[in-house]
Structure formats: C-alpha cells, structure tokens
Design a protein around this nucleic acid. Structure first.
Lengths: 146, 146
DNA sequence: CTTGTTGCAAATAATTTGCAGGCAT
DNA sequence: ATGCCTGCAAATTATTTGCAACAAG
C-alpha cells in the first residue's frame, strides 16, 4: 500500500500504522477543516457510518495514544464528554457556539501577556491554561435571534 | 433552633432548611476561606469525618440544587472530577496550583474586554467563558523547585 | 517471528435516579 | 397533614482494562 501523509505522522511518533489509527487521524483532520471538535462517541459513530468495524474501546485507546504523542489535544468543555482536536502546533484558545458546536480558534497576544503578568503577581509559575468562550455564532443568531 | 445566616440563604432560593443543606453550605464557606474548591467526594468525606450521616447521592443532589439556585458554581478543571465553589456574585477567573490544588481568584478588566472584542470580531454573542490558569504556586515552588 | 494492536466483554469511576420512609413547614 | 427530602441500592454514562486472536515490521 502507498505511503500516505498520515502514515508518516504515525511512524514519526512511534505508532504502528494500522487501519483504525489512519482512519481516526483522517476523521480528525476532516473535522478540523469543518471547525468541529469530536467526542470519542462522535468518532466511533462516524467510523461505523463509514462502514469501518472499529470498536469504541479502540477509539478511546487511539485518541489517548495520540494525545500522549502530542498529535491531539483533549478539551473538557462545559459538557460531560471530552472533545478531541488535532494539535496544530500553535497554541490557541477557543470560541464555542452553544447551538451548533462550531469551534473558532483564536490567539491573542495581549491576553496571553496579561495572563503571564497576573500569574507572576500571584507568585505562580504557569504551565498552561485553558480559555473557552461560549456563545452564539453569527449563523445561529441569524437563524433564530432568540 | 435559632435562625442562622445559612438558613436565610436557603429560604431565599426556595429550598427547605435541612441538615444536609446547612452542613454542605457551611463546608463550602469554610473551603472558600481556605482557597479550596471541593469535589462532591471531598464534601462527602468531610461530612463523614465530622460524624454526619449524609449519603453521597444527597451531596450530589444538594450541590446540583445549589447550582440551579445560583449559590454555587461548578467547574470542570483538567481533572475528571468536577469541583464546586460558592458563588460570590462577582465574576472571576482562576489560578490553580497543580501540586496543592490551591485556587486563587482574580479578575482582570483588560482580559475581559479583549475577550468581548474578540467575540465580536468573530460574530459571536458571548454568554460566558471560563479561564483556568494552571501552574505551581509560590509555596509549592519553594518547597521543591522541581 | 515477536510485539504491538484490536474487538469484545467485563470492570471502573463519576454521577443520577427510583423508591419507601422521614422531616420541615 | 402533605409534599419536599433523604438514604440506600440500583441504574446510567463516560472511559478503562483483561484477554485471546491478529497483524505490522
């Protein structure tokens, strides 16, 4: 079989190239293009719908491995299910639409800098942070201005 | 029995004054003074240690009722267990120590304003946000500068 | 070959719910 | 009295793990 882009990514982080891993990686890339973050269940269901016979446990295992390998980030949004997003390398924060779940990434130097200052003021050495902003996106607002 | 401060808070939000509710409210107030946020299990254990015979299910139920009543806020930090904090009325964000779990509250107008601007730029009408900053607090850093 | 991987089922962990008895108002 | 509350056990939901069969390097 020809060597695809995904195969390289997997090999690079020391994971064998298997069908579940390649498929899940593809799904995550597709989702990222659509500004969606997927839950493990989402991934599982999409694989099912695509005719793949991949168990939910495998989905969880693969996502965790991807996370450990730095390929993926896990977010605990307000909801009770975690969502996974492809790690793009550049840090960013998120705007999440409460209606359609669209996710918009942004990065603001000013906010980042203030965070650092505030941490220092309180004597904290910062390791990371998470900033999630929740609201209604323009499309959803237009659809029903409730 | 004399009417305490807690009793008033409970009545105000339409909840009957019962022992579990009063005790849990007291615990949350105490924890807040100590810059701690408690998980449901934490609350349960402390009640047990104090000799109270209150079930874990009740703890969850009461915390949820408090949340619905606006007395308490539930946070989904990095961990898999949610933590609860007394609602002080004024919005604030959090610095969380990864070693000792100390929580420091802060509020920064500059960050708040930038968030609003960013949301507008992306066409989002913001409803709320959560900003958690994780790191090592000064005491823990002094104790072992890992 | 040899070890990492997978699917399935069973196990955990956090939280919720049904129900019969109790307590606040 | 009467309906809100509670404890306990059972149910749910999200996620993890054990294990035998299987496949990648």
């Amino acid at each position: 079989m020809p060597t695809h882009q995904q195969d390289q990514e997997l090999r690079k982080v020391g994971l064998k190239v298997t069908l579940p891993r390649v498929k899940i990686l593809e799904l995550l890339e597709e989702a990222h293009r659509d500004n969606r973050h997927l839950t493990a269940e989402d991934v599982f269901r999409r694989l099912r719908d695509a005719g793949e016979d991949i168990g939910l446990a495998t989905v969880y295992r693969v996502l965790t491995q991807f996370q450990d390998a730095g390929l993926v980030i896990k977010h605990n949004f307000d909801a009770d299910q975690a969502v996974f997003e492809l790690e793009s390398g550049k840090h960013h924060d998120h705007l999440v639409c409460l209606r359609c779940s669209k996710v918009t990434e942004f990065s603001d130097p000013l906010i980042e800098q203030r965070q650092q200052e505030i941490a220092e003021q309180h004597g904290f050495r910062l390791t990371h942070h998470s900033l999630y902003m929740y609201g209604i996106c323009s499309e959803c607002a237009r659809r029903s201005p409730g």
